[in-house]
Amino acid sequence: MPLLPGAEPFQHRGGPIGVLLVHGFTGSPQSLRPWADRLVEAGYTVSLPLLPGHGTRWQDMQTTRWEDWYAEADRALRELTASCEQVFVCALSMGGSLALHLAAQHGSAVSGLVLVNPSVRSDNPASVLLPVLRHVVPSLPGVANDIALEGSTEVGYDRTPLHAAWSLTRLWQTVQAELPEIRQPVLLLHSPQDHVVSPANSELVLARISSTDVTELLCERSYHVATLDHDAELIFGASLDFIRRLTPATAEL
Results as ranks from 00 to 15, higher is better:
Leu218Pro: 05
Ala226Arg: 11
Gln30His: 14
Phe236Gly: 07
His230Cys: 11
Leu179Ser: 02
Trp58Leu: 04
Glu72His: 09
Ala104Val: 03
Gly96His: 06
Leu187Ala: 04
Ile235Tyr: 05
Leu171Asn: 15
Glu67Trp: 15
Thr212Ile: 12
Glu79Leu: 08
Cys90His: 14
Thr169Trp: 03
Leu100Cys: 01
Val120Asp: 02
Gly107Met: 13
Val137Asn: 10
Leu4Thr: 06
Leu113His: 10
Ala165Thr: 04
Ala207Tyr: 13
Tyr157Ser: 01
Leu80Thr: 12
Leu51Ile: 13
Leu228Ile: 02
Leu253His: 15
Leu129Lys: 08
Glu220Tyr: 07
Glu216Phe: 09
Gly156Glu: 09
Cys219His: 05
Ala207Gly: 10
Pro199Met: 12
Glu79Val: 08
Glu85Met: 06
Thr64Trp: 03
Thr153Cys: 07
Val196Glu: 03
Pro29Leu: 08
Leu253Met: 13
Asp68Gln: 14
Leu187Tyr: 03
His23Asn: 00
Ala207His: 13
Ala73Tyr: 03
Leu218Tyr: 10
Leu228Pro: 01
Pro52Cys: 08
Asp123Phe: 02
Arg208Ser: 15
Ser152Cys: 07
Asp231Leu: 10
His163Met: 09
Val155Lys: 00
Ser47Leu: 09
His190Arg: 11
Val175Pro: 01
Phe10Thr: 05
Ser31Lys: 00
Leu189Ser: 05
Leu21Glu: 06
Leu140Pro: 10
Pro180Asp: 09
Val186Lys: 00
Leu115Gln: 08
Asp229Lys: 05
Glu72Met: 14
Val225Trp: 00
